[in-house]
């Protein structure tokens, strides 16, 4: 539907950034629709595994929707919202799979993919829960982890987009990961 970078998206990102929540509520379905469109196009393509890393997907959608916009603030806001979507989708999917495993309902998925492609739902959901817990007392770190691992920004890109020194970002990531890891270990041990 979008014939290239979309000025409307740029406007919505800017308005959201300036505190207009209506802009955010318009933005979410647009970005989500585009993620789905690009994802299904990839699925139809000749592709040995029919797979694409979600992070590559986010980048492709970014280029399509926002590519011409050079504002770093818009860039980071786009990746923040897309990363949250990816996280949500993966969580929903992992939960559905877990329910399926327990026998309370069949999951519609093709077997050849299910075996190879989905993350181990329990492990993934635990990481997700720990991240939610981290956000309760240090939302900044949780946002950074989302940008990197669900949005697919490199540390350099994230530091640039957030306008902080790379070294600062690296320290944030290091502590966030140590905290998350310990949280998972403690849970395992309890």
């Amino acid at each position: 539907m979008h014939p290239g970078p979309d000025l409307n998206i740029t406007r919505l990102l800017e308005n959201w950034r300036n505190g207009d929540e209506q802009a955010l509520s318009e933005l979410i379905p647009l970005v989500y629709a585009e993620l789905r469109t690009v994802a299904s196009r990839h699925m139809r393509r000749e592709n040995p595994n029919h797979t694409l890393q979600t992070t590559a997907l986010v980048h492709e959608v970014y280029l399509k929707m926002v590519g011409a916009d050079v504002s770093l603030q818009n860039r980071v806001h786009f990746f923040a919202v897309a990363a949250k979507m990816i996280r949500r989708v993966l969580v929903d999917h992992a939960r559905a799979r877990l329910r399926g495993k327990r026998g309370s309902g069949a999951i519609h998925t093709s077997l050849d993919h299910a075996a190879v492609v989905t993350p181990e739902p329990a492990g993934f959901l635990e990481v997700n829960e720990a991240l939610t817990k981290l956000a309760e007392f240090d939302s900044r770190k949780s946002e950074i982890i989302e940008l990197l691992f669900f949005g697919g920004l490199t540390q350099e890109e994230a530091a640039q987009a957030l306008d902080i020194p790379l070294r600062t970002l690296e320290r944030e990531v290091k502590l966030a990961k140590a905290w998350l890891y310990r949280e998972l270990q403690q849970k395992e041990g309890s």
Binding site: Y32, M43, L90, D92, P119, E120, G123, F124
Partner: peptide, 20 residues
């Protein structure tokens, strides 16, 4: 460990996942 937990996360899930 985060990379490991996400390694297999791919778009086949994206196609399945409709957000409520």
């Amino acid at each position: 460990f985060i990379e490991e937990s996400l390694r297999q996360a791919t778009i086949s899930q994206m196609e399945l996942g409709k957000l409520s």
